[in-house]
Amino acid sequence: MDNLKKYNEIFMEILKIDENQLNEDLKIRSVSTWDSIGHMSLITAIEDKFDIFLETEDILGFSSYIKGIEMLKKYEVDF
């Protein structure tokens, strides 16, 4: 499975949103499901599915769908 597809599926499954919502407007709290529980679920799934351990600074900066992609590139995940 390519990494973008894997990344998108995490968001759609956890935040209960459609593929057409995966864009630059998707940010923390922009949908009701991206609350603290949703945020922790996303981090858990990203760490598990990409087999990485996110640094504190990266978690603090993970505030949108787009920033998550930029964050993963630092961990040599190609998109």
Partner: peptide
């Protein structure tokens, strides 16, 4: 919740 989460990590 998100602010408290950031504090704890």
């Amino acid at each position: 919740g998100l602010e408290v989460f950031n504090f704890t990590i």
